[in-house]
Design a protein around this nucleic acid. Structure first.
Length: 969
DNA sequence: AAAATTCTAGTTTTT
DNA sequence: CTAGAATTTT
């Protein structure tokens, strides 16, 4: 703690003094928020008629709650003992306690007769919950044949689980025969708001001379390109012939019969809640949800437990249900919400930034919703006082001002921010320090390797006297490695930096957990669990490979079921061991694994054992799922001394460093673009729950259509880069004295271009440091190696950056680019095949076999004789640049007869580079098929469908093309 | 200058 | 399978 913080400044003092009433406090980065809250708490509690038990202090994490308790003890007259049971807790803790003490029969309010018991546990592990949900959903599907159409649409059950959790975070709760309170409204969406947004988006945009078409109309230019049901209106009708699309579409897309969807959602949601309760567990969402129901239903209890004073920290991270819980827990209008909207970066955890930005209207709306069926919130909420903390004890003035610019930086060329409107929302901070000439802000662009440039820069920082930092007395000193933090957007970039740092011996520690289950140690443990469990084929290969067996030898051993005798002995001894953790321990011992990863693994297995009754086989299944999920686990990463901290921006929230280097500020990384797709169901506050696709097998031919209403509606909910800007802001405001941003030259993020800093080319290679003289992270995190070799495209072998240029063709008066034409040819080929094999469905197996020696096509060899195959994938194991890879080619047509194998690949692009790529691809076919069918003649050829720059192809030509394809086969 | 079409690279973050 | 940029057409 710095000396400045001992005294309270006038704004802080005001917050401490004014204890009665409703306050929203805008407490920016480094404004001494915790310190102030601590004092406010003490000041409330020191009133003669107030006890610690009267003040509810809610924080976001368990750690934050403990930290707060410690500081209150230190700064007030209360002792540890007196505050031991004081309600200083996180939301989940509050809910848990409430249910434990008073809530055993809560499920009854929803029509579920299971009781909560003291042994009901809170499932914290995502992978386990997904597993349980999956098994629930498996049963659900069998029981509910009526929902077949919706079930067909959903290929990943965890999509449903996400939706359920999202609804739970809003207080949308299912009951036996409907929805709790006004839950159904949320599912329906908000027509008024939708109309408003629709209108806004449909305003013509400003052109230089005359108005342009509206954003919405522009967005809908590709409407109609997808497969719609017959009742969908045509593109021209939807878009109309004005600058805006006809107004009536707003209502027509919003109004939709969603009764089946709602019923399905209800039954899944309610069914899973029952399922969890019967199995005696709750997830985070259910925990808060039940506490909410309890407080709503039991008026006497609510009055008994309510608190005269409520304070909530990190308010920008609260969800809707948490805000409502806080209102229910407050007995009077003494509520204090402290936070910083600019640091709201947890929307994926259901944080709703509008809780703080629209505090005044939200608190009124929520009160109204809570009082709809009873008087639950009795106090007045219309008088909300806003306070601001304006002095920052962390960053220098230039850094504070620069960080604000981060909130104004446009993330793409398309974005157009209302700068003034944003500035109006920002409370400008003033730095407390007078020292600031030493402070610097710079941006570097690395022409070749950004990681190396970052490391070189760090070495420069600790050696160059130009970078001075302030000590606790505000005096300047030279920085060390420990003063530097490197932030990244993604975990993976940080991990790579760590590897590069290890090469050069730069002391660097990665903080914030590793993907534990992807380590060699975990893989070995998994293999042994499988062996012990009797899954020989999945376990032994890993173990034997570690012993140096070749692939052939492994196959041989599996076939003969003959394994090395000491390994067999070890297996038999493991089978005698009773507890699962003990098995794991023995395996780790056998391999001499005893570092941080091994410890973490053991700890994990023990905690999983505590949470579930997993058998050995189930644990193996769990570990395999965790590999897929990329589950991360906190591991002790003691770099032992003076080292640079590497962490994600999310992990850095709440921390500060003298020198911050924000790395990988590259396009498409930060802000991340694209993505966001997938999933059959969508939810937004505005339009409610919607189905993206429609499954239909009315004509006996199952088909999935795009829901045309959704296709229009979704535009009204387009995401902007707001949260990414806040993430940028969080990163920038961690810095005390120096701020650096880095990117790859030529790939700089739009953010970087829009920040008021010159991006300078930085060429630098780190000096190699003798590893023994520096400290390294206790273990190095290995790069993620997916099981089996990497798959690369055949054409990529010809050149790493070959570019396709276009050829064009005219078909029936329409012009097609090369790609589109190629797709069309392809479609013809497929239609042809479908016609020919109408009574047979072709389902080529998509999975690559475990062993790289097994070529995929082989599995089809016998069954396919004499038949036509469309779009077959072939894989060829090759060594490329010293790495074993599977080279993938996708052939358009494959024909296999007793004497011959023929592959035809249609292409349109004849540019030199492309042809080169295709030739490699065809060579791959030739070779792979030659290996699979050694005694047959193998032909593989390219068939160019468009010559030169532009080719005229009429419909008749396509017919002849089809005939040609047919005659070849 | 505006609208339409095509191309490209991406698909995180973790209480 | 999508958002957003880039390019082409009107």
């Amino acid at each position: 703690m710095t000396t400045e913080e001992i005294q309270l400044n006038p704004q802080q003092q005001r917050l401490v003094d004014e204890t009665d009433g409703i306050y929203v406090v805008d407490a920016g980065a480094g404004t001494g928020k915790t310190h102030t809250i601590t004092h406010r708490y003490a000041s409330i509690v020191e009133q003669p008629d107030v006890e610690p038990g009267d003040v509810l202090l809610v924080t976001f994490t368990r750690n934050a709650a403990e930290e707060m308790r410690r500081r209150i003890v230190r700064e007030s007259s209360y002792s540890v003992r007196e505050l031991k049971d004081a309600p200083i807790n996180n939301f989940h803790g509050v809910a848990n306690q409430l249910l434990n003490e008073h809530g055993h029969r809560t499920p009854e309010y929803l029509g579920i007769d299971t009781v909560l018991t003291s042994s009901t546990s809170v499932l914290e592990n995502n992978t386990i919950e997904k597993q349980r949900f999956r098994s629930f959903y498996r049963e659900f599907r069998e029981r509910n044949d009526g929902y077949r159409e919706l079930i067909q649409l959903i290929d990943d059950p965890s999509e449903l689980l996400d939706l359920i959790n999202n609804l739970a975070s809003k207080g949308v709760i299912p009951t036996q025969d409907g929805w709790y309170q006004n839950g159904e409204q949320y599912i329906q969406g908000d027509w008024e708001e939708f109309k408003e947004l629709f209108k806004e988006l449909n305003e013509p945009t400003e052109g230089v001379h005359s108005p342009n078409q509206s954003k919405l109309k522009g967005d809908l230019s590709d409407y109609g390109d997808k497969l719609y049901t017959d009742d969908a209106p045509r593109c021209a009708d939807v878009r109309g012939d004005e600058k805006s699309i006809p107004e009536h579409w707003a209502e027509e897309v919003f109004e939709e019969d969603r009764e089946d969807l709602k019923a399905f959602l209800h039954d899944v949601y309610f069914g899973y809640l029952e399922y969890a309760l019967q199995r005696n567990y709750l997830n985070f969402g259910f925990l808060q949800m039940l506490a909410y129901v309890l407080l709503c239903e039991d008026d006497a209890l609510r009055r008994r437990v309510e608190y005269p004073y409520v304070m909530i920290d990190e308010f920008q991270d609260t969800s809707e249900i948490q805000f409502k819980l806080a209102l229910l827990l407050a007995g009077d209008s003494n509520i204090c919400a402290v936070g910083d909207w600019k640091q709201s970066i947890y929307s994926f955890q259901h944080a709703d930034v509008e809780n703080i930005t629209d505090f005044e209207s939200r608190i009124q709306r929520y009160k109204q919703e809570l009082n709809r069926s009873g008087r639950r919130v009795t106090y007045e909420v219309s008088d909300v006082e806003k306070l601001e903390l304006e002095t920052s004890y962390r960053s220098t003035q230039p850094i504070l001002e620069f960080a604000d610019e981060g909130l104004l930086a446009e993330g793409s060329k398309r974005e157009d921010l209302d700068e003034q409107a944003i500035r109006d929302e920002i409370v400008e901070l003033t730095a407390d320090t007078s020292q600031q000439d030493h402070s610097s802000i710079e941006a570097i662009a690395a022409p070749d390797d950004e990681e190396e440039a970052v490391l070189a820069k760090i070495q420069e920082i600790v050696e160059d006297p130009g970078y001075m930092v302030r000590d606790e007395n505000d005096e300047l000193r030279k920085p060390t490695y420990g003063d530097v933090a490197v932030f990244t957007r993604t975990r993976s970039w940080g991990r790579e930096l760590l590897n590069t740092a290890a090469e050069y011996g730069v002391p660097v520690a990665f903080e914030g957990g590793i993907e534990l289950y992807r380590t060699d140690q975990a893989k070995t443990v998994l293999a042994w669990l499988r062996i012990v469990d009797g899954e020989a084929e999945r376990g032994w290969p890993v173990v034997l490979e570690e012993l140096g067996y070749s692939l052939g030898e492994i196959e041989e051993a599996l076939e003969q079921e003959e394994y090395p005798s000491d390994a067999v002995e070890f297996r038999d001894r493991l089978r005698e061991v009773e507890s699962v953790p003990a098995v794991v321990r023995r395996v780790l011992d056998r391999y001499g694994y005893n570092g941080g990863v091994a410890d973490a693994l053991l700890e994990e297995v023990e905690s999983i054992r505590d949470q579930t009754e997993y058998t050995l086989g189930e644990l193996a299944e769990y570990m395999a799922d965790a590999v897929d999920d990329g589950t991360t686990v906190e591991v002790e990463t003691d770099a032992g001394g003076d080292s640079v901290t590497v962490q994600t921006i999310h992990a850095a929230k709440g921390l500060e460093y003298p020198i911050v280097l924000l790395a990988n500020v590259n396009e498409r990384q930060f802000p991340s673009s694209g993505g966001g797709g997938g999933g059959a169901l969508k939810y937004s506050d505005t339009y409610g729950v919607r189905q993206k696709k429609i499954y239909d097998d009315a004509d006996g031919d199952p088909y999935i259509y795009t829901n045309w209403r959704y296709d229009v509606l979704r535009h009204v909910n387009r995401k902007s880069h707001d949260e990414e800007r806040r993430l940028l802001y969080v990163a920038l405001t961690r810095a005390r004295d120096h701020l650096l941003l880095s990117a790859e030259q030529g790939r700089e993020s739009e953010f970087l271009e829009n920040l008021p800093v010159d991006v300078e080319e930085y060429v630098g290679e780190p000096e190699e440091v003798d590893g023994s003289s520096t400290t390294q992270t206790e273990f190095t995190v290995p790069p993620v190696t997916p099981d089996g070799p990497r798959v690369v495209a055949a054409s990529a072998l010809a050149s790493h950056d070959f570019t396709e240029t276009d050829t064009e063709v005219d078909v029936a008066g329409r012009r097609f680019g090369g790609r589109e034409f190629g797709n069309m040819v392809h479609q013809y080929a497929e239609d042809y095949a479908r016609e020919r094999d109408s009574d047979r469905t072709i389902e080529p197996p998509r999975e690559i076999a475990d062993s790289p020696d097994i070529v995929h096509v082989e599995e089809l060899a016998d069954s396919l004789t004499g038949e036509l195959h469309v779009e077959e994938e072939v894989y060829l194991p090759l060594e490329v640049d010293g790495e074993d890879v599977l080279v993938r080619g996708v052939a358009d047509l494959v024909e296999v007869t007793d004497s011959r194998v023929r592959v035809v690949d249609y292409k349109t692009d004849r540019t030199r580079d492309a042809v080169e790529g295709y030739e490699v691809q065809v060579g791959v076919y030739r070779r792979v098929l030659g290996e699979v069918y050694p005694d047959r003649e193998v032909e593989a050829e390219l068939y160019f469908t468009a010559e030169g720059e532009s080719v005229e192809v009429g419909v008749s030509d396509l017919d002849s093309l089809r005939d040609a394809a047919a005659s070849r086969l």
